[in-house]
Design a protein around this nucleic acid. Structure first.
Lengths: 144, 144
DNA sequence: AAACAATAGTTGCCATAGCAACAGTTGCTA
DNA sequence: TAGCAACTGTTGCTATGGCAACTATTGTTT
């Protein structure tokens, strides 16, 4: 393994890129008065796709800590976008799903997100995308 | 631009990979009783390389918010790893530099970091590294 | 020189991240 | 069936991230 791998700041680059992306998304959300954060959006998107999930599932699906899920869901419930529903058979479980307002929020924000996703890629090719995916997946798999 | 670019979760993948990396680093720091966080390490590394900088410079160099820098530095000062020094000519400025203990900490943690950086790359080539760097730099440059 | 703008850094507030401890529930097992 | 382990989710604590408001200082303008 060449020395570049060790001395060069790939961690730093990942961090800086992600922060700039997150910042841009948040600024666009704010500019269009979407009244949600980027991470709240990620949960809404996930809940839209899975219809009915638990905190645990959501944590796995989003790579978030379960305590973080718990707190973001609390905010979304307060905003009226998500509702909790106790499992009849297992009283430890709580099912989460979007309210009608939550579904509306999803549809409202979706097109903005669709446009924004293209921004980062505007000068890159499909091969670049595949490469990034492959490399990130490999790094992810390499870490114990 | 193909639809994959828009529908696929590159933001999510960046976030997940970075979190797993950060987590692994932190666990290794803890296991070896280094008594610092990953971000504290990033500042120490930067201060070692630049010897004497200001909060502002450090923020630019690390892609961190200046308020975050202010707070991390406060923690490092409390740990005795960094010392503040007022500028004689501009009393708004505060220069930051590692204490002898800070330099020692840098040298102590450096070899561990060196080993860890290789972990993520163990099944990847130098070309992969160059590709990742190029793609991340491009995304970064694309974002307004 | 007085007023104002720009700069450096801090503090308050809220959101996300992760660990530990906890409560309640369920399932297993002696 | 009593006891314990495993599981689900919440709460407390500390750290990082970002915005706004603030203090103190310096530079500029009139």
């Amino acid at each position: 393994m060449p020395d570049t791998f060790v001395s060069n700041p790939s961690f730093f680059k990942l961090d800086a890129t992600l922060k700039k992306l997150r910042n841009y998304w948040q600024k666009m959300f704010d500019a269009h008065q979407k009244d949600i954060t980027v991470d709240q959006w990620l949960l809404i998107e996930n809940l839209y796709k899975h219809k009915k999930t638990t905190h645990n599932e959501l944590a796995r699906n989003t790579s978030k800590d379960i305590t973080t899920i718990s707190r973001i869901i609390e905010l979304l419930v307060k905003k009226g976008l998500v509702k909790r529903e106790a499992d009849v058979y297992d009283r430890r479980k709580v099912y989460l799903q979007l309210t009608p307002e939550g579904v509306e929020k999803y549809k409202d924000v979706k097109s903005l997100v669709y446009d924004m996703r293209k921004i980062g890629w505007k000068t890159l090719t499909e091969t670049d995308y595949a490469e990034l995916t492959r490399i990130l997946d490999t790094i992810y798999a390499n870490i114990p």
